[in-house]
Design a protein around this nucleic acid. Structure first.
Length: 479
RNA sequence: GGUCUCGUAGUAUAACGGUUAGUACAUCGGGUUUUCAUCCCGACAACGCGGGUUCGACUCCCGCCGAGAUCACCA
């Protein structure tokens, strides 16, 4: 049987890192089995609906490389893929339930419901609406919610991650199927949709675990089979132990993207948070994940989200892309991350800068801080020179003459390239009798006035003869 | 409160009855002609507690403790 999975977000805002995984895993499973991934928009809550959220979600998925086979834009045989456009379908199924006596219109007011609830809380007994079913039930019509008439019993089921599950009748209740505004609840809609769309594997977060028995009861009353149930453990907030949510400051995927986290990193990190293939591999391409993914190795316990490791992994990915795909591939991803003063620089020059700085980047946005001096002359800061921990021991006149010696030597260079620069710097070391720490720090700071920079000969090479010498002269005359 | 789930170093994890409990991030120390990184080497650091079962338990069973999820006309 073809594997059909789905990602079914509700358009209430951005996708944060706590819930991208419920898109990644279904995607991996679908691709691994040459199946289909369906994107379905669960927009039945009109109050929480956010304009543009669907586009934002699709944009995020696209960035991550999660493409769907059926859903908005691409269409498909099982549409519409917006729940708000499927009302008739839900109502048709609802009428079947009414006919079989498994659903009823519930005239109870929200106030009355509240009262019941408080009563139960006071008595310290669990609130179950089925104990309060009204006597004279009206016809179901718009304006009145429709409830499921449950038949309390035990349920046993298998969860691909959690294993064999069991619950007693006390967890079953008369859940609302259709709200008074005519829209279905998630509880009802997702069951109908998954069935009609042929979903074979249902992957969702652990927060749905406790309502699963109610869903099982619904499948039964509807006389339909349920997909394989795969419960994903929660991603926990970095500090607390709670499920990561927007309230805990869970950032949107878009935010990470803007901070210079690569899509590869995001995908890799999240896929491996709560899953591993049993080997010691840490860096996975999407294809490797598709190949190696298996639901039976998904963790059962929640995993804390660790941004430090994400940053480490991003550094790994930056280097991996550079090493395996070349500077062009990495450069393509950096276009939005250069400092303001790099605006007029050529692509060729920026690529040169990138190729000597890339292994220092944790995020692409580090470029802004780390490369400014490549694009315009830094402000001369004499204190930075004389206060440097290696240069402190030298007098100012010594520094000045050392700089002048260096300038003379470097100016004499026939061909200004990395190799020759390296050789010349070595000669300078011998001739001046200075330690590398002293001579190189001096030159490095004089040309960059930055806390750090790439290897000296490479930096000089990229800056070029004219700029390098001009900056050295400026520094020398400022001392 | 009911129900369900979870519990290996600070973090993510490996182990599926027998290992000096492995790996990675983080931290600390060292190395590679300056810095910051990369890279390499090293160090620190864990089986929640208590009972069983067993020749032998991180691994199986029970209890306890701790943590989380859920009990909406939200998804």
């Amino acid at each position: 049987m073809e594997t059909i999975t789905r990602f079914a977000p509700s358009p209430t805002g951005y996708i944060h890192i706590g819930n991208v995984r419920s898109a990644i895993y279904p995607y991996l499973l679908a691709r691994q089995n040459k199946g289909k991934l369906i994107l379905r928009i669960e927009d039945t809550d009109r109050a929480r609906y956010v304009e543009g959220a669907t586009e934002l979600i699709m944009d995020t998925l696209e960035w991550l490389g999660i493409n769907w086979n059926e859903g908005p834009i691409v269409g498909g045989p099982n549409g519409p893929y917006f729940q708000s456009e499927r009302k008739d379908i839900y109502h048709a199924w609802a009428r079947k339930l009414i006919e079989s006596g498994r659903a009823y219109a519930d005239p109870t007011s929200p106030e009355k419901l509240d009262e019941y609830r408080k009563e139960c809380t006071a008595k310290k007994v669990p609130f179950l609406y089925r104990n309060y079913r009204p006597e004279n039930l009206p016809e179901w019509k718009p304006g009145i919610p429709l409830r499921f008439k449950t038949e309390p019993k035990e349920y046993n089921w298998h969860d691909e991650v959690m294993g064999d599950m069991h619950t007693g009748p006390e967890v079953l209740d008369d859940i609302i199927l259709i709200k008074k505004d005519g829209y279905p609840t998630y509880n009802f809609a997702h069951i109908i949709d998954d069935h009609e769309m042929g979903v074979t594997h249902l992957m969702r977060g652990a927060e749905y675990l406790s309502s699963t028995p109610n869903y099982l009861a619904l499948y039964e009353a509807l006389n339909i089979d349920h997909p394989k149930i795969i419960t994903l453990p929660h991603i926990l907030a970095p500090d607390g132990r709670k499920k990561l949510g927007k309230r805990d400051g869970a950032k949107s995927v878009t935010e990470y993207r803007e901070d210079g986290i690569l899509a590869e990193t995001m995908f890799n990190y999240l896929a491996c948070l709560g899953w591993n293939d049993g080997t010691e591999q840490e860096i996975y391409t999407k294809d490797e994940l598709i190949k190696n993914f298996s639901t039976d190795r998904i963790q059962t316990s929640g995993a804390r989200y660790d941004e430090t490791k994400l940053l480490w992994m991003n550094g790994q990915w930056i280097r991996k892309i550079f090493d395996e795909q070349g500077v062009d591939a990495l450069y393509e991803r950096t276009v939005n991350f250069w400092p303001e003063n790099a605006k007029d620089a050529t692509d060729e020059y920026k690529q040169k800068v990138l190729s000597i700085i890339y292994d220092r980047l944790k995020t692409l946005s580090d470029l802004r801080e780390m490369t400014a001096y490549f694009f315009s002359d830094p402000t001369v800061d004499v204190d930075m020179l004389i206060g440097n921990k290696f240069l402190k021991k030298l007098s100012e006149s010594e520094l000045e003459s050392l700089l002048k010696t260096s300038i003379a030597k470097l100016s004499a260079l026939q061909t200004w390239d990395a190799n020759n620069l390296q050789q010349t710097l070595n000669v300078l070391l011998e001739e001046t009798g200075k330690k590398p720490a002293e001579l190189f720090s001096l030159i490095r700071i004089a040309i960059s006035f930055a806390p750090f920079s790439p290897a000296l000969h490479l930096t000089l090479d990229v800056l070029g003869r004219e700029t390098s010498l001009a900056r050295l002269n400026a520094a020398a005359s400022a001392i």
